[in-house]
């Protein structure tokens, strides 16, 4: 069985290596434009910013591996953050449970519609997106009225470093992170969102590679009929995938909410297309059955570095959009050529 692994991994590592190369080039270019970007705090900041997108893209990866797609993911994320912030007055556990319930219900509806009723996932989730926008627009003035400020604990979990280093450096030095001792900088970059992302990534990778569910996610995406003929109830796998996707999206949304302090209805809007782009760049096929979360993580870091590069360049929103689109397209193209050659 040894040679099995060798073959599989050499194929994957080839594309992973090229993704790493792209990330490295982005890093160098950003650094050359502004040397600050070479510093440890700047690198830490990339991970900090990437965390929320990484969680959304994790959900999208699972969904897309089954051959699906979730275009309602941004509204699921926004909704979860919204519920948590508005309901936090009745206690954080209740608020979080409600948000979880919300994610599970929406994910289950998406998944059941796709799995049991044979809905086209694109249309189902687009429709769900419209429904959710409507529901929350109405909700803001009715059943979800209230302060949309995110509770302090969640803000800490979404923004703070795990170990508070503020007392470690003297007042005079602390203003400029570049002058901190290296170890302080490193500890300071270990933020909660980075930790949460790392933890969840480990769980997602474990599920996809080491569990029966993971096998079935790939199987259903590659050939649903074959899975069915092998005795698999395909709808169960699809529903589970959409629920997992929604939960991951909800977590990403809450993280985003915490990072922005208050929740607006447009909170995660601009993250929907990047969540798909990160998966595509990472080499997961939009038809399902092939790809992995490692690639998506690289895709997430590439996109985040890219937008920090654009910020460094001080580009207007218009230019940002153009370059973003062009680069996503180019990377997808390069990837298609690489995998063609493999």
């Amino acid at each position: 069985m040894r040679s099995f692994k060798v073959l599989d991994e050499s194929r994957i590592s080839k594309s992973m290596l090229s993704l790493f190369g792209i990330l490295f080039i982005l890093y160098i270019v950003t650094g050359l434009l502004d040397p600050y970007n070479f510093s440890i705090p700047a690198i830490g900041n990339i991970f900090y910013l990437a965390a929320a997108l990484g969680l959304l893209a994790a959900g999208q990866t699972i969904c897309m591996l089954t051959g699906g797609i979730d275009l309602s993911l941004a509204m699921i994320a926004t909704g979860a953050a919204f519920i948590v912030s508005v309901k936090s007055s009745s206690g954080l556990p209740i608020a979080l449970s409600l948000a979880l319930l919300y994610c599970v219900v929406i994910g289950a509806i998406n998944g059941l519609a796709v799995g049991l009723l044979g809905m086209n996932p694109l249309i189902m989730t687009l429709g769900m997106n419209a429904v959710l926008i409507g529901v929350f627009t109405v909700g803001v003035t009715t059943f979800l009225r209230g302060s949309s400020t995110v509770p302090d604990l969640l803000i800490t979990l979404s923004t703070a470093s795990i170990i508070d280093t503020s007392s470690w450096v003297s007042e005079s030095v602390s203003a400029d992170p570049r002058s901190w001792p290296v170890f302080v900088s490193i500890i300071d970059t270990l933020t909660w969102p980075f930790f949460i992302w790392a933890l969840i990534s480990a769980v997602v990778l474990f599920i996809l590679i080491k569990t029966g569910l993971g096998r079935l996610i790939y199987a259903v995406g590659d050939n649903a009929r074959a899975a069915r003929l092998a005795g698999v109830k395909v709808w169960q796998v699809q529903t589970t995938a959409y629920i997992l996707c929604a939960i991951l999206g909800g977590m990403g949304g809450i993280l985003l909410g915490g990072q922005s302090g208050a929740v607006a209805l447009s909170l995660a809007n601009s993250f929907l297309l990047p969540s798909i782009a990160a998966v595509v760049i990472g080499g997961t096929s939009i038809m399902g059955g092939i790809g992995n979360y490692k690639g998506t993580m690289m895709g997430t870091l590439i996109l985040t570095s890219l937008s920090s590069l654009l910020t460094t360049l001080n580009s207007s929103e218009a230019v940002k959009q153009m370059i973003y689109g062009a680069i996503v397209l180019t990377l997808a193209w390069i990837y298609a050529k690489i995998s063609e050659g493999a």
Partner: peptide
């Protein structure tokens, strides 16, 4: 879907 998704960013930018 991937190509048109990416070009949609691009065109809105333009």
């Amino acid at each position: 879907i991937v190509v048109t998704l990416a070009t949609s960013f691009l065109l809105v930018g333009v």
